[in-house]
Design a protein around this nucleic acid. Structure first.
Lengths: 79, 79
DNA sequence: TGTTTTTTCCCTGTTTGACGGGAAAAATAT
DNA sequence: ATATTTTTCCCGTCAAACAGGGAAAAAACA
């Protein structure tokens, strides 16, 4: 296992009882993309990574020292 | 502002007193990429997104119902 | 054991993001 | 108001991710 994200994805996939091919089809991406993700290919389109994470019910969020300040200024939804 | 991530990046960039061009140069990416990120272009290479976030001292992490279980099985560093 | 499933890793063509340059529009400063 | 900086958004070129096929290796299962 070459990287953290790959390990996370693989773990969640297996827990869901899916093969790489299953996951790829559910996410609407190619099988090689899933393989690459799990094996540490860092150069992936964010769009495709998110498709895969969505199927696995994983969500990304950010951490930073300014997070509090950011949230304070964005109570009103900007999306 | 079209998306959350873009807003976060812009907020952090301004707080750091950087222009889009400054940020691009510090991150080692093109100016148009920073512009695209802040304005909701979702199709960005993860690699490049991470470069930008690194400059802004923002880190991504994942959330999922299985996170606990995952961490339990990965106490020994897999990287 | 042999059989089936899954993963790994080729290959090829297509799509698309990344880049720098440039210039107009918008914002900021003097 | 005018000058300067910054942002927005064109463009053309290039590199790289993508999908899908295929087949060997590995793993799971009978």
């Amino acid at each position: 296992m070459r990287n953290k994200l790959g390990a996370i994805i693989r773990f969640h996939r297996k827990r869901s009882g899916l093969t790489q091919l299953d996951l790829a089809e559910l996410a609407g991406v190619g099988k090689n993309l899933v393989y690459g993700l799990e094996n540490g290919q860092e150069s992936v389109r964010l769009e495709n990574l998110l498709k895969v994470l969505r199927v696995l019910n994983i969500e990304l969020d950010f951490q930073s020292p300014l997070k509090e300040a950011y949230l304070k200024e964005h109570t009103n939804a900007d999306r």
